[in-house]
């Protein structure tokens, strides 16, 4: 994580170098400033060009983009984001619900339970999860996870079918929403665990000692002195994870069966997402089709942007809080 040290003031040095009339100073300063501005420009350009290239397709659309379920931009020119956006949100929320508890457990394990010597290498092991490419998770999901989940899915459907998420008739299991969500959960676990681990390690030692000195067990100490302190960090970590899950493409493109409907039946083979649809549809799309995909990408961009900005907002608030407490 970036440390929040204030930038060292180069005041006297700048004036001294200016007095020596160093010829490299100004160009170097402008160059580095320009690089930073270029970064801002890229962010702006992403928005501008996604919008401008989406407009022709949106104008050609015969259906309402926000409410239409189907995606037929190439043939009938009817397409809408509703089912895809629903799938993106549902799959990401499911992934978050699965990943967060495990990630918090992992973070606590590394920060407060594992033997000190093993903590760093074991943390590295979790980081390796993030190093596995998305497409490999997709391959693994199709070849291993999808067959693995079939029996438990059928069991859930038979025994807990009254619960809307587990309901459904016909084919149960296979390339389902839950299979994709589990893969997404594995993929976002490392980032949630890594950030949570950082904030748990930053919990003030003196409060931990105060809890222990009152006769708290390890868990009671964590509940009194670590979790309250780490809560905002965990929340923003989870939101960053949510943003990741929403944008994750290739793994779910391989797993999701590319259906276009809105259903909460996560054990049936009905699932899709904006990102998966882009990956699966791009190769065969014509001009309108590509424009439509760009429009859906714009929606994805905006959603993830909002989620990420909210997460950053929470983190920055926490930094101020931590500084005030120190």
């Amino acid at each position: 994580m970036a440390t929040n040290v204030r930038t060292r003031d180069g005041g006297p040095a700048t004036s001294r170098s200016a007095s020596r009339r160093s010829r490299g100073e100004a160009p170097f300063r402008y160059l580095s400033t320009a690089a930073g501005v270029a970064l801002l420009a890229i962010m702006a350009a992403i928005a501008v060009f996604l919008i401008s290239e989406a407009i022709p397709a949106l104008q050609a659309n015969k259906a309402n983009f926000f409410t239409e379920l189907t995606w037929e931009p190439n043939s009938s020119r009817e397409f809408g984001i509703a089912a895809l956006a629903f799938g993106t949100v549902l799959s990401s929320l499911l992934a978050l619900v699965i990943a967060t508890p495990v990630a918090v457990g992992v973070a606590l394990f590394i920060s407060h339970y594992a033997p000190r010597r093993l903590a760093a290498p074991l943390g590295y092991l979790i980081d390796l999860l993030a190093a596995v490419p998305s497409v490999v998770y997709g391959l693994w999901g199709v070849a291993f996870l999808v067959p693995l989940l079939r029996t438990p899915s059928q069991w859930l459907n038979e025994n807990l079918g009254w619960f809307p998420l587990f309901a459904g008739e016909g084919i149960i299991g296979g390339k389902t929403m839950i299979a994709g969500a589990v893969v997404l959960a594995i993929m976002i676990l490392p980032i949630i665990a890594a950030i949570s681990r950082e904030v748990f390690l930053q919990a003030p030692k003196m409060n931990e000692e105060a809890a222990l000195a009152l006769g708290a067990t390890r868990w009671e100490m964590i509940r009194m002195a670590v979790l309250p302190f780490g809560r905002p960090g965990v929340i923003s970590a989870a939101m960053l994870g949510l943003g990741r899950a929403m944008g994750e493409t290739i793994a779910v493109a391989l797993i999701f069966p590319a259906t276009f409907d809105i259903t909460f039946q996560i054990l049936t083979p009905h699932a899709n997402s904006i990102a998966a649809n882009i990956a699966n549809g791009f190769g065969e799309a014509n001009d309108i089709g590509r424009g439509a995909l760009i429009a859906s990408g714009l929606v994805l961009f905006i959603i993830t942007l909002l989620v990420n900005m909210a997460a950053r907002f929470v983190i920055n608030r926490r930094k101020e809080y931590a500084r005030a407490g120190a």
């Binding site: 003196m206 409060n207 105060a210 009152l214 006769g215 002195a225 302190f229």
Partner: peptide, 17 residues
């Protein structure tokens, strides 16, 4: 520790309580 209480060098009330 329940029997033998401790007060530390720097005051350390729980900040969230």
């Amino acid at each position: 520790r329940r029997m033998i209480g401790m007060v530390f060098q720097r005051p350390n009330p729980f900040p969230t309580m």
